[in-house]
Simulated scan of single mutants.
Amino acid sequence: MSGITRRQTLAAAAGTLALPGVARAQAQQQLAIATGTTGGVYYPLGGALANYLSRGIAGMSATVEVTGGSVANLQLLGANRVGMVLTQVDAAVDAIRGNDRFRGRPVPVRAISVLYTNRMQVVTVASTGIRTMADLKGKRVSTGAPGSATEIMAFRLIEAAGLNRETDFRARERLSPAESTNAIKDGKLDAYFFVSGVPTSAITDLGATPGVQLVMIDHDQFVPAIVEKYGPVYFAETIPAGTYPGQTAPNKQMSVANIVAVREDMPAALVTQILQIMWGNREDWARVHSAARDFNLEGQKSAAAGVPWHTAAEAFWKAQGATLA
């Protein structure tokens, strides 16, 4: 496994990858699920999903990969090194079109479910004096881990706010959310960008730190310009006050949907089994992390998915009564 991922084995593993991210050896299937950093939401949700699949499909051994996030996940999917990914829709659209980090290497990605909303969070503390996006100029910031969709969204937001990511910051790091929180605590960083479901553990940790006053930077005013340039995958939302310790005001921010995705050539029968188990465990999944409460029938929309449905997923959701259009 390359340096951008680290496998966390949740069940016994055996065999060599043959089908798209799926191995078969002595009647056992191995499915690798690419998630994200340990301080985000993809990782706990992916871990729970791996457990559900390992228990629910005879001979299945599902594992999770710790990665930089959506871009890395889709690159692994394109290389046939994982069989399933959690990803933001904007990164999936870039992947299927062969844009940006996928230039010349389009990925045959297909959605199997729409999960929950990912929210851009621009995080700082009161002692930095940062209150607006413009205040980030000359500061030390982190724009997210390499290979993350945070980095994609951060660059687009920075551009829309009239800042230059190469010249306008005193320093620009590429840290995970947990690393960013620790760097702010240590006085080595002023602010960071992180896209995730809410609440997320790294920001909760920062807000709960004694002597620290958490500040979340509003940026919803830049959404129209970003949509005009990059398409209608983004939308404005509000993170309510009190979502995080010390968060005294609502945070007006930019959001994007998350999907679970596979390659187009994953066998239809396996996709159907996976969805049956996901859907059947949805209440337990929401207890793992509150973001999964938004995994519902109403959310299964083609526009929200961003990329084409796997044919088996389309059939599954229609049979459940979803209106995909």
Rank of each mutant, 00 (worst) to 15 (best):
T243R: 06
F235D: 08
V107P: 00
L189Y: 10
D294Y: 15
Q213L: 08
D168R: 05
A291I: 13
Y116V: 07
S290N: 13
T128A: 00
A92K: 10
T272M: 04
I239P: 04
G129E: 10
A161F: 09
L115A: 09
Y234M: 04
K188V: 08
G280P: 05
N164K: 05
A249H: 13
S70L: 04
G59W: 13
K188T: 12
V125T: 12
S201W: 15
V256F: 01
A325E: 15
R156E: 01
L297E: 11
A149W: 11
A145V: 05
A257L: 13
G231K: 01
K139I: 06
K137I: 04
V123W: 02
I33T: 11
T238Y: 08
A34M: 09
R97E: 11
L270A: 05
T67S: 01
R55A: 10
G321Y: 07
Y52C: 05
G144E: 05
P177C: 09
P308W: 07
A261C: 05
G83M: 11
V114G: 01
T238V: 14
T128N: 02
L10E: 11
D205N: 13
G59E: 03
P245V: 15
A12F: 12
F295G: 04
N258K: 10
I4H: 06
S302N: 15
N164H: 02
A171C: 03
G78I: 07
R140V: 02
V64E: 04
A319Y: 13
A25R: 06
K137S: 07
P146F: 11
T9W: 04
M153W: 04
P232T: 12
T38W: 10
K252I: 01
T67A: 01
S127W: 11
T181I: 04
L115S: 08
A319S: 12
A257Q: 14
V271D: 05
F316M: 11
R174L: 02
A305I: 15
A27I: 02
E166K: 01
T200F: 06
E314D: 09
